[in-house]
Structure formats: structure tokens, C-alpha cells
Amino acid sequence: MLSKILKNTFIGAIGACILSSSVLAADFPSKDIRLIVPWPAGGGADAISRKISNIAEQELPKSIYVENIGGAVTATGLMQMTRSRPDGHTVGVLTYDSVITLPRGKMVPGYSLEKMQPIARITREADAIVVSKHSGFNSFEELINAAKENPNSVRIGVAPKGSGPYLAVRRLEKQTGVTFNVITYPGSSSAEAEALLSGELDAAISSLGDFSGIIGSGDAKGVVELSIEQNPSFPSVPPVSTYGYHLETGSFILLAAPKNTPKESIAVLESAFKKAFESEEFQTWVATVGVTPSWLGSTDVQAWINDLQTSTFKVMDDLNL
């Protein structure tokens, strides 16, 4: 008799927990949603996150506010996200470093993508080679030819070892048979932009959007995008496939919540951000900053992450990185 009572009590407790979770999810969101951007304010990831969240909150009864928590190559902010209550009221922004650099290098104890529930991919952004006006180069061909004639003489700036741009320059050297004088710069691409302006660098690899200021002023010029497709926002910058090379690299914006966030809450967030993504306002704006809108929903984005890691880690193995 006692065991039956205990069994019924246990089943009742489980049922109450399930009902409580369902009620909470049905009331979601019950407060403003915190969107953690793991980079300082003012960068590309910050701008995209703020723009789409401003539109997405129009679909919700509560607001979405952005909080910038930089540090440890995005790990600091994202670990705060994963430690938050898994109720959908805290969301994080993931970039290339979050998905590739940190997991590959096991750089930060406790950081793991397994503690996150992907919601969607918002954008993709190809890396590009930008040359300084001081370099005298006006095309990708001129840059490669100079590196062939004088190995290790063309100074090219990239993010630190393990980053997308660093992998890109090493893969480019392998495919073209040249050797660059590779100089790494920690942090955002602003340091590389300053080095291009001063003549410290001949070229640099990051997105065209990251260098839009000095490109617009005429102090730098985009000569190629590391993509197989033409970027409609920059028709004068050809994809590297034009020259017979197959090299795709770049960053992206993903959204994720803490693991075990109720699927009902994930669905509400996904719906709001998808409507924002499809809005004319977002599509028009994203074109002006040279970023490619590229939606993947919650049912597909995890498989995409897995494929990206597999292919990128193989490249790293091949390059002994």
C-alpha cells in the first residue's frame, strides 16, 4: 500500500512539473528577452543583432534588449547565456569563433556547444582580401603575382591562428603556390584597418563590411571575395572562383538559447526572428552593409553546424593547425 502511494506521489510530481513547464512556455515571453552579443558594441555582429532584434520584438508582447559581453573569443558572454535559466528569456549570438575557434582549441574550460540549443542562422558573410592604396595593387592577380615574384614580401593581415581569415590565407598560399608575410592582429578588424591606412600592411583578410569605412574613403579596395558566388552588394569585387580557385570562408550570425529551453519557447523565438528576417526593412538594410541574408531554422541549423565543423577541422588537420 505504501509503495503504491509513493508511486502515485512520484507520478503526480512528474506530471506537475510537466504541466508547470507547459504553462510557463504558454505564457512565454513573460518578461523582456536578453540578447547577449559576445563582442563589444559597434562591430558587425552587434549591428546585425540589434537590427534584427529591434524588428523581431514587434512580433512579441515584450521587448528584446542587447547586452554586449565581450571576452575570451566570445566564450565569456556565451557561458553567461548557458548558465541562465533555460526558459527562453536569454538568447546568445554565435559567430565563427563560437563554433570553430573555441571548440577546436578547447580554449576555455566549461565552454561547450552541447550546452546550447540553436534557434536559427541569420546571415553569412564571406571573407575578402582588401588592399591598401599604399600597396600599389589594384587586383587579386597583381597581389598573387607579386607574392610569386618575391616570396614573403607581401604583408597580409589576418586574425590570430585558428581564425577563419588565418585558415583562409594558409589555404590560399597552398592553392596559389605563394608565400605571404602573414601578420596576425588580435581582436576586431579595426587594428587591420589602421594598419592598411598607415601602410603597415599591403592587404588584409576580413569581410568587406568590416572595411567599409576605408573602402568608402578610397584608402582601400576590395579585390576578391573568398566565395564561389558573386556578392550582389559588391558587384565590382569578384569571387575567387573567377580565378579558378575553390575557397569559401567567412563568418555568420547564429542565435542560440541554453540547452533544455522548452521547444515551445524556441518556436516562439524562431517565428519572431524569421518574420523579422523576411521583413523588407531587414532585407533592405542588410544589403546596404554587404552581408548576405541566409536563414536556417532550428530543425536544420544543428546539422549545418556539424557539417561546418567536420569540413573545417579537416582543413585544420591538413594544415597541421
Results as ranks from 00 to 15, higher is better:
2 L>M: 14
9 T>L: 13
12 G>D: 10
14 I>C: 14
19 L>E: 02
22 S>F: 09
24 L>A: 15
25 A>E: 11
28 F>W: 14
30 S>Q: 14
30 S>K: 07
31 K>Y: 05
34 R>T: 07
35 L>S: 00
42 G>H: 10
58 Q>S: 14
61 P>K: 12
68 N>K: 04
74 T>F: 12
78 L>P: 01
83 R>V: 00
94 L>E: 01
95 T>Q: 03
97 D>E: 10
97 D>A: 01
98 S>Q: 03
101 T>I: 00
104 R>P: 00
107 M>R: 15
132 S>M: 09
135 S>I: 05
142 E>Q: 11
143 L>F: 04
143 L>C: 02
147 A>M: 11
152 N>M: 06
156 I>S: 07
161 K>R: 14
164 G>F: 04
168 A>N: 11
170 R>Q: 12
173 E>C: 00
173 E>R: 02
173 E>G: 02
176 T>H: 00
177 G>S: 12
177 G>Y: 11
182 V>Q: 15
184 T>Y: 15
190 S>F: 12
196 L>P: 13
197 L>Y: 09
199 G>N: 07
202 D>K: 12
202 D>Y: 06
203 A>N: 06
205 I>V: 10
205 I>M: 13
212 S>N: 03
217 S>T: 14
217 S>F: 12
220 A>E: 14
221 K>V: 01
222 G>K: 08
227 S>P: 09
230 Q>K: 13
233 S>L: 01
238 P>D: 08
242 T>Q: 13
246 H>F: 09
251 S>Y: 06
253 I>V: 07
256 A>H: 07
271 S>V: 02
273 F>E: 02
281 E>Y: 04
282 F>Q: 10
283 Q>D: 00
307 D>G: 08
308 L>P: 04
311 S>M: 08
315 V>D: 15
318 D>W: 06
319 L>Y: 03
320 N>V: 03
